[in-house]
């Protein structure tokens, strides 16, 4: 057993999640208090390039498992591959993604140890690592410690920890590890509809639309649509175009309330909130969103919140740093223009 801190580098087809480097940064910080090395763990078919990038971001060494069975991520072969490395570690840190939630869960079972997902803060208290994670949709926070089983497994929420700068001059050992990987019982058949644009959870700016996107009185729907529901959806799509334009000017991603998703204004992959995605951008702009508690659950940790709503009593204003009481169909396009002018050049 060593005091080293192990960090799993999550990637999609060889492309590392930004949160992977945030996790390396958080491990560096812990190592500076606890001593020990930061060891990155990279799994895949042919991923040696990632190993180098991990060192540039602050890892001292890398453990790498390369195997054709790891070409596509499936949690079972990845858990098999991770097991020998995880078994050596006392503290194993993952970034949080759909993949790592499965992987951390399975390694937890394999080594009969505890898993704390979605950690937003870390501290060292008397030589012990104390993690903080939200529970009850962020209404409460819970501190979590290991009762001594090894390793203590954590997944860190995206954007909760600073991303370290890469330094190409850093160097370190890259060690190949052998693992026994069972042939998986499931297989990735393919992908459809890859998400275009900026990923919601990694975005520094999120602009979201709610039920208010659908009621622009200035719009005249095309003559061939007569059904009321269809007219509403058509109007809402125009409304989301306003939201998208604003997001584009800011290099941000588009979010939505559940009401907008349920009304078929926009696909579910955009939903922010308790039953959607949790985002924590530097800037969150809520357009035509009331601010129901389940929506707040997905965005309350945003650094600066701007609300545009025609109802001055909408609860979203209680959380907002800046507010505009007005019609989003007037304000949002004007704001897009104002920002475009100021940000150009």
């Amino acid at each position: 057993m060593t005091e080293d801190i192990y960090v799993y580098i999550d990637h999609f087809k060889g492309e590392a999640l930004p949160a992977s480097w945030e996790a390396v940064g958080a491990a560096r910080q812990l190592a500076s208090e606890l001593g020990g090395k930061v060891i990155a763990v990279v799994l895949g078919e042919s991923v040696s390039e990632l190993a180098g990038t991990a060192i540039a971001h602050g890892a001292d060494e890398v453990r790498i498992v390369e195997d054709p069975l790891l070409a596509e991520f499936r949690p079972e072969p990845y858990a098999d591959a991770l097991k020998p490395v995880a078994a050596e570690s006392e503290l194993l840190i993952f970034p949080t993604s759909g993949r790592t939630r499965e992987l951390a869960a399975m390694v937890g079972v394999d080594l009969e140890t505890g898993v704390a997902p979605d950690v937003i803060a870390l501290e060292v208290d008397g030589g012990q690592v104390v993690a903080t994670r939200p529970i009850y949709a962020g209404k409460l926070l819970s501190k979590i410690v290991s009762k001594g089983k090894k390793p203590f497994i954590l997944t860190l929420r995206s954007r909760a920890f600073p991303k370290p700068e890469a330094d190409a001059s850093r160097s370190g050992d890259i060690v190949s590890v052998e693992a026994e990987i069972a042939a998986p019982k499931s297989e990735v058949k393919g992908y459809s509809e890859a998400e275009a644009g900026v990923s919601l959870t990694d975005a520094a700016v999120v602009v979201s639309g709610g039920r208010g996107v659908s009621n622009n009185p200035k719009l005249t729907p095309p003559a061939d649509i007569s059904d009321e529901k269809e007219i509403e959806i058509w109007k809402a799509r125009q409304g989301f175009e306003e939201v998208e334009e604003l997001a584009k000017v800011l290099g941000g991603a588009v979010g939505a309330s559940r009401a907008a998703v349920d009304a078929n204004y926009i696909p579910y992959s955009h939903q922010v909130g308790q039953t959607g995605k949790v985002v924590s951008p530097d800037l969150y702009i809520a357009c035509g969103i009331s601010g129901a508690i389940q929506h707040l659950a997905g965005m309350r940790t945003s650094k600066t919140i701007v609300a545009i709503n025609k109802d001055a009593d909408a609860p979203i204003f209680k959380l907002a740093r800046f507010g505009v009481v007005g019609d989003m169909h007037e304000i949002v396009p004007a704001l897009t223009e104002a920002l475009r002018e100021r940000l150009k050049g």
């Binding site: 409460l140 819970s142 501190k143 410690v145 009762k147 209680k318 907002a320």
Partner: peptide, 24 residues
Amino acid sequence: PPEPALAWPEIFAPAKVETQCEFI
């Protein structure tokens, strides 16, 4: 069944961020 591997030494409400909304 397996003993809990984790302990929760403290559960608390997040610090209230007093945001004063600046209306434009």
